[in-house]
Design a protein around this nucleic acid. Structure first.
Length: 672
DNA sequence: AATCCTGGAGTTTTT
DNA sequence: CTCCAGGATT
């Protein structure tokens, strides 16, 4: 899209104050952000290093960077910040580590690390079972996202249980401190607290970031919004782009009300709506608009397009989930041939990952190539976690979590009793496990043989760390892996040789990424020395780890959750499982979260460019037995005149629907 | 240290 | 029904 429409142009050119761009699905919001960055650099002559754009995912940041550099010629775009919130937070903490009291090389705990730590803390406390673990972890995360300190949490606690969780929260934070570690939520929270306590530091950052742009603003949580407010200060140099109708992450702390909050916090806010859609047919948009109109709205918005009326939306009711999958697979097969389309033109979207299974089987049966996105991530793989733990320990010996993961991987004949004593020794002296393992005093508590083993380990690792500090850290890491014969360990543990080879390949890929990260920061980091610490920290945030994007080249049907589909588009979309308890999901019905489920459905519908087909199964096997299903209430909220129904009874549904009264549920009760 | 057994859950997910 | 985690058992 080379030409901007008048609304888009207004959004790009308006720089006299804070600006909220209400960008409907497919309205070219990324264009607006990238063009605005180019405009600021080229027309307003604002140096790129004073501009920052924030996204939620690395992928979005990467794409935005690419698009900006294709718009801005030469070196003018150098120094531009396009990063995720978390990456910006990481940079701030790294730069201000001294003030904050973190040693360089601090660790970043992901959700799993945090969970392991919490588990330990709660076990020491006694009587806390696994149920609580999830709850506590979630609660602490919520508190952090809402900027609630443990003092506030404790003061606000009404029940004994809440008081207990608040205390775990306190001890959890203390433990993180002791390990020289931060968790994901801290990456935002710590900068916010820093800026609150040190106005001069904030001023420094405000001078650095003179214009701020935020993508997917409806997904910000409270602490992220506060960070934005702090950085913008009174300058009003802010553009945010978002769509309240596509807010589907409230369950992980997103506050869509941050959009209306913006109006209060910045009274001079200019609101610009982008309603022209460049993706879908009018029919698809009509259906989407009709559905979302059932939600209350702060900002009204109606999408329209010039892409033609398009085919009616089809709603298919299949006898059961097997027939549903079969039908979709068969349709894709014949439709592709008949219309000379590609497999990659089709997407199958569902609410939950487990739904993918049946479709996978059916697609395989028909020999249809497919790709499932989502599922277990690269970083969840054990071999990656192992190697990352080694890397973390090299850089930060105080990271007890990493120590515990690594100490017996591969086996070093250090038993649980030795580790228990070591842990006690360490906590009495307020030192890390690694430090404790090196102490002479340990000999009076642990058999000599075990002390030797521990010390052999710490000495070896210290040497590895020294090697890594040299000029070829990557080769130091390679020889470390050879030292421990990690490959042999993988073969020993894997179910097959092939699996072990695959795992080793993953490890090599990880190290390659590390090398790339080091090369890159050597290239464009004028100010600071290249540090392996930084590269490892970035790896934890999955930055610089471009997943092999062969998927773009290959011709495969796309399978993914509705959540994962946000921001993408497909010519032909199948949304499956439109049943009560599935979409809307049962838990959401129970928690009265129907509006978010409706938005999720809206997101799905607006992914489609040309055709959209929604399916449901009349009977579905769940939790062992087969039950009748109820069609999703959202199907009743679509305009019947744009829809073709199939499988809802013998006689023609149009006859009934002509009256415009009948809902799917009433049709069902008539004919079933 | 490895394997078997039992029980409980069974949405969405990025950083 | 099916999968996983964690505990118990060998």
């Amino acid at each position: 899209m080379t030409k901007l429409n008048s609304r888009q142009r207004e959004a790009v050119h308006y720089i006299d104050g804070p600006c909220l761009v209400l960008a409907g699905a497919g309205s070219g919001k990324t264009s607006v952000i990238t063009r605005k960055i180019a405009y600021l650099i080229q027309q307003c002559e604002l140096p790129a290093r004073h501009i920052a754009a924030l996204t939620f995912t690395n992928k979005a940041a990467r794409e935005m960077k690419e698009r900006v550099s294709s718009l801005v010629k030469g070196t003018a775009a150098r120094g531009l910040t396009v990063s995720t919130f978390h990456n910006l937070g990481l940079n701030i903490i790294r730069r201000e580590a001294r003030i904050l009291g973190y040693k360089p090389g601090f660790s970043i705990f992901d959700a799993e690390d945090a969970r392991a730590l919490l588990k330990e803390l709660m076990l020491k406390d006694g009587e806390m079972d696994k149920d609580h673990l999830d709850l506590v972890q979630h609660q602490i995360s919520t508190w952090k996202n809402d900027l609630t300190t443990f003092e506030q949490a404790e003061a606000a606690a009404v029940s004994q249980a809440e008081k207990t969780i608040a205390r775990v929260y306190q001890r959890y934070n203390q433990a993180l401190r002791a390990y020289n570690a931060v968790d994901f939520d801290d990456l935002i929270l710590i900068p916010v607290h820093l800026f609150q306590a040190n106005p001069d530091v904030l001023t420094r950052w405000q001078r650095k970031i003179r214009y701020l742009l935020v993508d997917e603003y409806q997904d910000t949580n409270s602490s992220q919004y506060l960070l934005v407010k702090q950085l913008v200060g009174s300058s009003g140099a802010l553009t945010v782009v978002g769509d309240d109708d596509q807010s589907i992450y409230a369950w992980r702390g997103a506050r869509p009300e941050n959009m209306s909050l913006l109006k209060q916090d910045f009274p001079q806010l200019r609101v610009i709506k982008l309603e022209q859609n460049y993706r879908s047919t009018s029919r698809i948009l009509r259906v989407a608009n009709h559905l979302i109109a059932h939600n209350p709205h702060e900002f009204d918005k109606a999408l329209w397009s010039e892409m033609g009326l398009g085919d009616p939306i089809r709603i298919l009711r299949c006898p059961n989930e097997e027939a549903e999958a079969e039908r979709v697979a068969a349709e894709i097969l014949t439709d592709r041939i008949r219309h000379q389309r590609k497999f990659r033109d089709y997407a199958i979207l569902y609410r939950g990952n487990h739904q993918a299974r049946l479709f996978e089987i059916k697609l395989q049966q028909h020999q249809i190539p497919y790709r499932i996105s989502g599922g277990s991530s690269f970083f969840a793989k054990t071999e990656i976690k192992d190697v990352m733990a080694y890397l973390r320990l090299i850089v930060n010996p105080d990271d007890d979590n990493a120590f515990l993961r690594v100490i017996n991987t591969p086996r070093r004949q250090i038993g649980t009793s030795t580790l228990e004593v070591l842990g006690q020794y360490a906590s009495e002296r307020h030192i890390s496990l690694f430090a404790a393992a090196q102490e002479i005093g340990l000999q009076s508590y642990v058999p000599e043989k075990n002390v030797e083993r521990l010390q052999r380990f710490t000495q070896w690792l210290t040497q590895v760390a020294r090697n890594c500090a040299g000029d070829n850290p990557v080769s130091a890491i390679h020889s470390m892996l050879t030292d421990i014969d990690y490959e042999g360990w993988l073969h020993q543990n894997a179910t097959s040789t092939k699996a072990a080879e695959k795992r080793m390949e993953n490890v090599h890929y990880l190290i390659e990424s590390l090398q790339k990260s080091l090369d890159k920061s050597a290239d464009d980091n004028e100010d600071e020395e290249t540090r392996i610490e930084d590269a490892i920290a970035k790896l934890v945030l999955r930055d610089l780890l471009e997943r092999q994007e062969e998927e773009d080249l290959s011709d495969q049907v796309q399978l993914m959750t509705l959540h994962a589909s946000k921001g993408l588009e497909f010519p032909h979309v199948y949304m499956v499982g439109l049943e009560e308890d599935l979409l809307p999901h049962r838990n959401s019905i129970e928690d009265n979260n129907i509006e978010e489920e409706r938005r999720l459905t809206y997101v799905g519908i607006t992914r489609a460019q040309k055709t959209l087909c929604m399916t449901l199964a009349g009977k579905r096997k769940q939790f062992g037995d087969i039950a009748d299903t109820t069609p999703s209430r959202f199907l009743d909220e679509l305009p019947a005149e744009d829809i073709e129904y199939e499988g809802f009874g013998e006689s023609s549904p149009e006859k009934n629907l002509a009256k415009g009264e009948e809902t799917i549920s009433s049709l069902l009760s008539m004919f079933d």
